[in-house]
Nucleic acid binder design. Structure first.
Lengths: 217, 217
DNA sequence: TTAGTATAGGGTAAAAACAGCTTTTTTTAC
DNA sequence: GTAAAAAAAGCTGTTTTTACCCTATACTAA
């Protein structure tokens, strides 16, 4: 039996993870790792220097250019490339967010190597692959709620800035000062985010944002 | 030139990272990965089935049995084995905590593979290895404060449980109910933790605990 | 015009943060 | 075994911050 190897690239800001994964996948003899990158911007820079990959393994939270943005860029500029999201967390929002951004699949970093290889091969054939670990959650979401819940967690730059400053010991008053806005405006942001994240406290907001990989600490 | 390979084991709950790293290090031809484990308890179970490793790469936050506890167990039962802590974060407390637990070094997962190989080889020769990325911070701490600040952040089981429940949308009242304690007792825990972590708000506490890898979300 | 959005405001109730003190339980030492 | 010491748990307050109302203006876009 003889099949063509799948060409992939890996985009993740943890060097050891990225390079380790590259070796691990190369060993499988079914995957060929063309290159790896530190973040989305780095990937865009490196993409023209190699043959186009079939699949790109994509981390979500990265400095400079994150997984959502990078995936959208790929689907806009190279729609033939399939993106497989790799995440630490099993939360609805990053899953849905990445799929909405154009990812063809979502795997947890806790997965086994064999499963990842299967996912990469599956996704290369245009099929959607959702890790069994996350599929239950996603299916529940799709079944219980309306159509996959239209919450792409759209945050404007100010809300995102506020969210980052929320992850600290600062009071809202201090955050308002730092953003040069009235505390009341900050209160509007807070309320809007509480609704979007369906939480009732600042702590809940922070935890939720972290789990959804919107911010990193 | 011919040197003996360094025998190591890897303890980390992220399967892809663990296995990827194993392959990456094996490729270097200077490291021999004897086995890997999901957490401290798993490691203790697997240790007798292999030759004793020279170095163990140790994650900090893991389910069942974490890095601090596991490192202490190793130094108590196999003092000849050197532990190299591997972490995502560059915070004082996990660094100091792991070193106090008996680790011989501390590396970030953002490090390059070559640096990790150097660290493993260095540590195998009993030398202390602190990642250049973290050394500045640690040195500052050692220099500014008294002897490495005797804050191993000693948390009793109740405080730790409280800390975990703090990472949620729950009010203190609800946390008190869940722990079957008076809200006043919870208030004592809160105050004690605020002092230990040097924070002034619940949000600050949660962020600090996460950065210090005392809890995971 | 009208709708939408970002900003800013006042007021209120709940929760969180902080301080000071008492009782109970556990540890330790004699 | 018991008394002293220490730790854990509990209570009464007050002040500050959060959380949640509802309203208003200014600017933009359909």
């Amino acid at each position: 039996m003889h099949t063509e190897k799948v060409n992939i690239a890996i985009v993740d800001d943890h060097t050891l993870f990225r390079q380790g994964l590259a070796h691990l996948l190369t060993e499988s003899n079914e995957i060929n790792v063309l290159f790896d990158a530190d973040n989305g911007a780095d990937m865009i820079k490196k993409l023209p220097l190699h043959p186009l990959p079939d699949v790109i393994l994509m981390d979500i939270t990265m400095p400079v250019m994150d997984g959502y943005e990078t995936t959208k860029w790929i689907k806009a500029n190279h729609p033939g490339i399939n993106v497989l999201a790799l995440s630490m967390f099993e939360e609805d929002k990053p899953i849905i967010g990445m799929l909405k951004s154009g990812a063809g699949g979502y795997m947890l970093k806790q997965s086994k190597a064999g499963d990842l290889v299967s996912a990469i091969k599956g996704i290369a054939k245009q099929s959607i692959y959702i890790n069994e670990l996350v599929s239950g959650k996603l299916l529940r979401n799709i079944q219980n709620n309306q159509p996959v819940k239209n919450t792409p967690i759209g945050l404007n730059p100010n809300e995102l800035k506020f969210l980052e400053l929320c992850c600290s010991d600062l009071t809202y008053k201090q955050i308002a000062d730092m953003m040069n806005l009235s505390p009341h405006t900050i209160d509007n942001y807070r309320e809007a985010l509480f609704q979007k994240f369906e939480v009732k406290s600042r702590t809940g907001l922070v935890i939720s944002a972290l789990k959804n990989e919107l911010i990193k600490i």
